[in-house]
């Protein structure tokens, strides 16, 4: 097998094949982009507050302890479904109050427990962040995670 393959043939297969698979990948990515915007994230509107909440999430680098949709640091709980975990789908007001109170109470004075820092969020930032978490919870992500525990 090795004898039949010349270097220039191997080179042509590499360039041609890579281009072929790249074009398929681009096409599927374009379709996925369209699908996300039109289908999977359309349950709740992508409001300015949700966008601002994503910014709060980024500004405080939550991703380097928590994970969201399974991506992040694995040091603290998964948050893509935290809205469900706080029963926000049944009682949104109680979930909002619960999430805000939890974040404001950090760090908990429990020795030997992982410490979440105290992030000094304004009321507006807190509202946006929770809007963002609620919006994320509504994404159709093939029913991941398997359990409410995240």
């Amino acid at each position: 097998m090795a004898e039949g393959l010349t270097k220039s043939a191997a080179r042509n297969i590499f360039y041609g094949g890579s281009l072929f698979f790249f074009l398929i990948f681009v096409a599927l990515t374009a379709h996925s982009h369209w699908y996300i915007v039109k289908e999977s994230t359309s349950a709740l509107p992508l409001t300015d507050s949700v966008r601002a909440g994503k910014h709060v999430w980024e500004k405080n680098m939550c991703i380097n302890c928590h994970s969201i949709m399974g991506e992040g640091a694995y040091f603290a709980p998964e948050l893509s479904n935290v809205w469900t975990r706080y029963k926000g789908r049944d009682n949104p007001e109680a979930a909002r109050a619960g999430l805000a109170a939890w974040m404001r109470a950090q760090p908990l004075a429990i020795p030997g427990r992982r410490k979440m820092p105290h992030f000094d969020l304004s009321d507006e930032e807190m509202t946006s962040l929770i809007d963002f978490l609620q919006w994320t919870d509504a994404i159709d992500d093939q029913n991941w995670p398997p359990h409410e525990s995240g």
């Binding site: 699908y35 996300i36 994230t41 949709m69 399974g70 992500d141 093939q142 991941w144």
Partner: peptide, 13 residues
């Protein structure tokens, strides 16, 4: 290239 798909399971794709 298409192996990227293993990151596109659970993110709304």
């Amino acid at each position: 290239l298409l192996g990227t798909g293993h990151h596109y399971y659970w993110i709304g794709t």
